[in-house]
Design a protein around this nucleic acid. Structure first.
Lengths: 204, 204
DNA sequence: CTAATTCTGTAACGATGATTACAAAATAGG
DNA sequence: CCTATTTTGTAATCATCGTTACAGAATTAG
């Protein structure tokens, strides 16, 4: 028994996905209601009726992108591969998003944090949560690598500390990779970053 | 013999520095001519007479910030310290810029690349140049570390390749640090990233 | 002094921003 | 069919955008 009234002519999720593209291409401030209407195919009336305002739609787009990204990263880092191969897969998974013929490629969450971090509590919250989860996943991968012997634990090192620091280094290098990819569009640099990061963690 | 006409009531460099602050706080799109006038203390007439338009002022601000940053990074990485200490100093030098009570802290060059990369040729050019220079400086540091034995070269490794990959990893981790600092405002995370990066390169 | 030149502040411009108002269209229940 | 309800598209609203026009102020050269 559907609610009374005229039924919607669109699926919310499709609209949010189109909004993701719009905000990826233009950023937040430079993305106008006009842009959003064109990308989503909705009229102003429908857009505002369904999503409230530009900021609410932005946050919905960000949360959707966030969820999709976390799910995919989880899938990659839980494959039955060696730790090194799993991290390599994570790093390489980003490349198609960063090297594309779209006008403004890259990662919406990083873009959001750089454009609006510190002045948008929703953005701050989503970014922090995203980072926390990725950090925990990489820690888990490296703990497994210690357990299997793939990652040797130095004599002087405390396992939890050692793993946490290496995991955060890997995560930082991953975020740096995204930034450098987008900014330089240099695949050779990306390749050296990936090899260097894996070498630094696991040795030759 | 100064040029005829009424003399300027401001120093160009001060204005550019004020513009840097304005663009750091608001980004490009969200920073209005009004904002720039307030931050610089100039009237619209003077601003447009002296700098042409918003985008030209933005690029001047970016180039100024770029130059200052490169100079400082050069100073840090050429100190007479061990390679590890120099890299640590570079990483720690960023912390006060990222953890500040300003509304929008961080690095203007990264912000610019994230907001306008791929759609602003001047931004792309400045970012690429900045990255190239930093990359070369880190490569130099690691080559010296190989020469002194501070950084052992694995049997199977080719020195130039090994150094290039580790240097790019360090640079990537540095950019990731900037992003994660700004987005999470988490000094404990920053500390782990720095220690993890140095450990991964130089060992324990 | 005058003339030429440059800078300054204010007002105005047309364009575009986000958002709202509202009438017409489309449905459900009765 | 009728009423209530929701969605849709368009027009309008008010604010702000980047930029320009321009009159007056401040300077130099002569």
């Amino acid at each position: 028994m559907p609610a009374p009234g005229r039924p919607r002519e669109f699926k919310d999720q499709r609209v949010v996905e189109a909004a993701v593209d719009a905000f990826l291409n233009k950023g937040y401030a430079a993305c106008s209601a006009q842009d959003l209407c064109e990308q989503t195919g909705l009229g102003r009336g429908s857009l505002y009726n369904a999503f409230g305002n530009k900021h609410e739609l932005y946050i919905e787009a960000l949360e959707h992108y966030d969820q999709e990204g976390i799910t995919e990263q989880q899938r990659i880092l839980q494959q039955s591969l060696s730790a090194k191969e799993r991290l390599q897969t994570l790093f390489e998974y980003a490349l198609p998003f960063d090297f594309t013929d779209q006008q403004k490629p890259g990662c919406l969450i990083i873009n959001a944090a750089m454009e609006r971090g510190g002045m948008d509590d929703d953005v701050d919250r989503i970014f922090r949560r995203h980072v926390d989860i990725l950090e925990q996943m990489i820690v888990q991968v490296l703990h497994e690598a210690i357990a299997t012997g793939e990652l040797p634990l130095p004599q002087s090192a405390v396992a939890d500390t050692y793993v946490a620091e290496l995991a955060d280094m890997a995560m930082s290098s991953f975020y740096g990779l995204r930034v450098l990819n987008k900014g330089t569009q240099n695949p050779a640099l990306a390749s050296r970053i990936i090899r260097g990061t894996l070498t630094a963690i696991f040795g030759n």
